[in-house]
Computed example of a mutant assay.
Amino acid sequence: MVESFHDFVVHRTAALSRTAYLLTGDHQLAEDLVQTALARTYRHWRRVRHGNPEAYVRRVMYHQQVSWWRRRRIVERLEAEPTERADADHSETTTLRLTLAAALNHLTPRQRAVIVLRYYEDLTEAQVAEALGCSIGTVKRHAHDGLSRLRSVAPELVDAATQRSTR
Results as ranks from 00 to 15, higher is better:
Glu76Phe: 09
Ser135Leu: 08
Val75Thr: 10
Thr24Glu: 09
Gln111Tyr: 03
Thr24Cys: 13
Thr41Val: 09
Thr108Arg: 10
His44Gly: 10
Arg18Pro: 00
Gln64Met: 06
Phe5His: 07
Arg46Gly: 08
Leu100Gly: 07
Glu76Thr: 14
Pro82Glu: 14
Glu81Asn: 07
His106Ala: 13
Leu16Asp: 03
Asn52Tyr: 01
His50Trp: 13
Glu130Pro: 05
His63Ser: 09
Glu121Pro: 01
Ala30Glu: 01
Asp145Ser: 11
Arg73His: 09
Leu96Ile: 13
Asp89Asn: 02
His50Leu: 07
Leu96Phe: 09
Leu16Phe: 03
His106Asn: 13
Pro109Ala: 12
Arg110Met: 09
Val10Pro: 02
Glu81Ile: 15
Arg40Glu: 10
Asp145Ile: 06
Arg43Thr: 11
Arg12Met: 07
Thr36Tyr: 10
Ser67Asn: 06
Arg58Ala: 02
Ile74Arg: 03
Asp26Pro: 08
Ala37Thr: 00
Thr36Val: 06
Glu54Asn: 04
Val9Ala: 04
Arg49Ser: 10
Leu132His: 03
Cys134Leu: 05
Asn105Pro: 00
Thr124Ser: 15
Phe8Glu: 02
Tyr21Phe: 15
Leu107Glu: 05
Arg85His: 15
Glu76Leu: 14
Tyr42Thr: 04
Ala143His: 01
Arg18His: 04
Glu81Asp: 12
Arg12Asp: 12
Arg85Pro: 05
Asp87Arg: 09
Ala103Arg: 05
His106Lys: 12
Thr24Trp: 00
Leu123Pro: 02
Ser148Glu: 12
Phe5Glu: 00
Thr24Gln: 10
Arg110Phe: 11
Ala129Asn: 06
Tyr119Val: 02
His44Lys: 14
Ile136Pro: 01
Glu54Phe: 00
Ile115Cys: 04
Leu107Pro: 04
Ser67Lys: 03
His90Ile: 14
Leu117Met: 09
Ile136Gly: 05
Ala126Met: 11
Leu98Phe: 10
Glu130Ile: 12
Ala14Phe: 02
Arg85Gly: 14
Trp68His: 08
Trp69His: 14
Gln35Val: 02
Cys134Val: 15
Gly133Cys: 05
Arg110Trp: 08
Thr19Ile: 05
Asp32Ala: 08
Arg12Trp: 04
Ala80Thr: 15
Arg71Tyr: 00
Leu33Ser: 00
Val75Ser: 12
Leu29Ile: 09
Arg40Asn: 15
Val10Gly: 01
Val128Ala: 01
Arg49Gln: 08
His63Glu: 08
Ser135Thr: 15
Pro53Trp: 00
Arg59Tyr: 00
Ser91Val: 11
Ser135Gln: 10
Ser148Leu: 10
His27Gln: 14
Gln28Asp: 15
His90Gln: 12
Leu117Lys: 05
Ser4Arg: 11
His90Leu: 14
His50Asn: 14
Arg110Tyr: 07
Val57Leu: 01
Ala14Asn: 07
Asp32Phe: 02
Arg141Pro: 02
Ala101Asp: 15
Ala88Tyr: 08
Gly146Cys: 02
Glu79Ala: 12
Arg73Ala: 14
Gly137Ile: 08
Glu3Phe: 05
Ala86Asn: 06
Ala20Ser: 07
Tyr119Asp: 15
Asp7Ala: 13
Val139Met: 03
Arg49Met: 13
Arg85Leu: 15
Gln65Ile: 00
Trp69Val: 00
Thr19Ser: 09
Arg97Glu: 09
Thr99Pro: 06
Arg58Tyr: 10
Ala20Arg: 02
Leu104Glu: 06
Pro82Trp: 12
His11Arg: 13
His144Arg: 12
Ala126Gln: 11
Glu3Met: 09
